[in-house]
Simulated scan of single mutants.
Amino acid sequence: MKIISFATQKGGSGKSTLTLVLAAALAVDYKLKVAVLDCDYQQSIVKTRVQIDEESLQLLKESNPDATYPFDIFSIDLNGIFDFVDNPENDYDLVFIDVPGRADGDDVFNALTACDAVIVPLVADYLDRASTAEFMHILQTIKTEADKAEIPFEYFGISTKRSNNKEEQEMDDYVDALGLARFKSSLSYRAAYKRASTLYSLTTPAYLRYVGGDKNVSEEIHAVCNELIERMELPIKSVTE
Rank of each mutant, 00 (worst) to 15 (best):
I97W: 00
I97V: 13
I97Y: 00
D98K: 00
D98M: 02
P100S: 01
G101P: 10
R102L: 05
R102P: 00
A103R: 00
D107S: 14
V108Y: 05
F109T: 04
F109R: 09
T113N: 11
A114R: 03
I119E: 09
P121G: 12
P121H: 09
L122V: 06
L122D: 09
A124F: 02
D125R: 01
D125S: 12
D125M: 04
D128T: 10
R129Q: 14
R129C: 14
S131G: 15
S131W: 01
A133Q: 13
A133K: 12
E134R: 11
E134V: 03
F135G: 06
F135T: 08
H137A: 15
I138C: 12
Q140F: 03
I142R: 02
K143Y: 12
A146W: 00
K148M: 09
A149Y: 01
E150I: 06
F153W: 04
E154S: 15
Y155S: 11
F156D: 01
T160K: 05
R162P: 02
N165E: 05
K166A: 13
E168L: 09
E168V: 10
M171D: 07
Y174C: 08
A177H: 05
A181C: 09
R182C: 15
R182I: 15
F183R: 06
F183Y: 14
R190L: 15
A192P: 04
Y193E: 10
A196F: 03
S197C: 05
T198R: 04
T198G: 02
T204I: 13
A206H: 02
A206M: 03
L208G: 08
K215H: 08
K215Q: 12
N216Q: 13
